[in-house]
Computed example of a mutant assay.
Amino acid sequence: MPQRWTIAFDADDTLWHNETFFQLTQDRFFELLVDHADPQTLEAQLFAAEERNIKFYGYGVKGFTLSMIETALEVTNNKVPQTVIRELVDMGRDMLDHPVELLPHVRDVIETLSEDAKIALITKGDLLHQENKLAQSGLGDFFDVVEIVSDKTATVYQRIFAQFDTARVMMVGNSLRSDVIPAIDAGAWGVHVPFETTWAHELAQEPDHPRFYKIESLGQLPELIASLH
Rank of each mutant, 00 (worst) to 15 (best):
M170W: 12
N174R: 07
P104C: 08
L96Q: 15
V193H: 07
I110E: 03
T198M: 09
T20F: 09
L42W: 11
S178H: 13
E70W: 03
D35W: 05
E43W: 11
I122A: 01
A162N: 10
R93E: 14
V89P: 00
A48Q: 15
D179I: 09
G63H: 02
D185G: 02
A154H: 06
L218S: 07
N77Q: 15
A167I: 00
V172H: 12
Y59V: 06
V80I: 15
A120V: 12
M95L: 15
T197C: 06
V169E: 06
V106K: 08
V75Y: 04
A37D: 13
L88H: 06
G63N: 02
T6N: 06
D144V: 01
T198Q: 10
F21R: 10
R86G: 02
S175H: 05
V109Q: 05
L24F: 02
K79T: 15
L203F: 02
R159H: 15
T153N: 03
L224N: 07
D185V: 01
S137C: 05
E87S: 10
L121K: 03
P182K: 03
L24N: 12
A44T: 12
A204R: 07
W5I: 00
L224G: 06
E101H: 11
P182G: 04
L221K: 08
S137K: 05
I184P: 07
